[in-house]
């Protein structure tokens, strides 16, 4: 894929805010494939599909998929093994 078409996890902040009270882009996610841990904001996001495909910046495996249609959301948890969320994250 053209590198210029890749966004990052900052682009997920809006859709996350529709679902969660804490600011999830600063949550630390751990990739179940390579073990890399980092903020979701630093993930690679491919937003051209019907939803967003969120990939690990370390190994490229799919961490998470998000599809939204007509008020419904589908969250697919692929390699996202753990998410550490701070209760006061905003």
């Amino acid at each position: 894929m053209d590198a210029e078409l890749v966004l990052d996890g900052n682009a997920l902040a809006g859709v996350f805010s529709e679902l969660f009270l804490q600011e999830l882009t600063v949550a630390q996610g751990t990739c179940g494939a390579c073990g890399l841990t980092g903020p979701l904001a630093e993930t690679r996001v491919y937003a051209y599909a019907p939803g967003a495909v969120v990939r690990c910046p370390g190994c490229g495996d799919v961490l998470l998929t998000i599809v939204k249609e007509e008020g419904r959301y589908w969250l697919g948890f692929d390699r996202l093994r753990c998410l550490e969320i701070r209760g006061d994250a905003r």
């Binding site: 996890g9 900052n10 600011e23 600063v26």
Partner: peptide, 9 residues
């Protein structure tokens, strides 16, 4: 519009 959005950057 809606916002503000994003807490990382």
């Amino acid at each position: 519009l809606r916002g503000p959005i994003g807490g990382y950057f």
